[in-house]
Design a protein around this nucleic acid. Structure first.
Lengths: 142, 142
DNA sequence: TCTAGTGTACTAGTTTTCTAGTACAATTCA
DNA sequence: TGAATTGTACTAGAAAACTAGTACACTAGA
């Protein structure tokens, strides 16, 4: 028994809302993003195993894999076959990982809010584009 | 021959980029939005007819209809069977005004938060664009 | 080595999305 | 009224998205 996994941040659990029509794998991704921005998950934390999530939510392991894989591609987490899945220590070594990670989290949250309020992402993006064009002051101080 | 349509803002034309993988109907919607924000299209302007667009772009009339219909639902344009499709005089007829105002408020708040966190609006917009392209579904209630 | 626990790969079925085919209905104008 | 022009409705097929079934491979620990 991996007591490490048990004693640490194993508390994290996924939820599922089938009434929204939002794909399961995307809900998982969003929840990881949200947990990251909320500080519930931190670098090095272990995520529940593919099978564990599959059993808990009564879904197929591959659906969990898909979510984990996308997050891994973005550098959000790392997977180690036979060991487990963990929040990456450094999200994106390319640039300032922390900064980019927060930007992702912010974008995800914004997207979720817009959707919940009945707006398409496209609509929001257009308004933001207008704002950007209107007030160059909102840009990086130059 | 409707010389009215000919002499007025009939200049507007749709384009199509099949290499992007973005659905045709969506490209049409985006182009109307872009033309509106760019001032190329203005309230009262007539859009090319469903059939005209279908012929020009070698697509099915119903694909054009779908784009026009979504824009109509949002109050962007009005259609009149047997007459044509026009940019709505008032983009925000009463109740839609409330909706748009809230969108503006949301956009403003988002912009403020991004700025406070040290991101440019451009950065956020780019991430949102990625999110949009990743999940074009999200299913807006119809 | 052996076993338990982990992620992975391949394939397939179902659902949703997107586009098309075809016929119908409303409007305008001579 | 009747023809031409416009948008609309219904149906269906192809493609993509999403999830599932099943077997395999890697890792850690006894």
């Amino acid at each position: 028994m991996a007591e490490v996994a048990k004693s640490r941040a194993q508390a994290f659990q996924f939820r599922l809302d089938l009434s929204t029509g939002i794909p399961v794998y995307r809900q998982l991704i969003d929840q990881v993003h949200a947990a990251l921005s909320a500080g519930v998950l931190n670098p090095g934390d272990r995520l529940p195993t593919v099978r564990q999530v599959a059993v808990d939510l009564a879904i197929n392991p591959n659906t969990v894999v898909r979510a984990y894989k996308e997050l891994e591609i973005r550098g959000i987490l790392t997977t180690q076959q036979g060991t487990g899945t963990f929040i990456a220590e450094r999200q994106t070594p390319a640039e300032d990982g922390e900064r980019l990670r927060k930007l992702y989290a912010l974008a995800a949250e914004v997207a979720a809010r817009a959707g919940a309020a009945g707006y398409t992402l496209q609509e929001l993006i257009e308004r933001l584009n207008e704002l950007r064009d209107e007030s160059p002051g909102a840009r990086k101080s130059q």
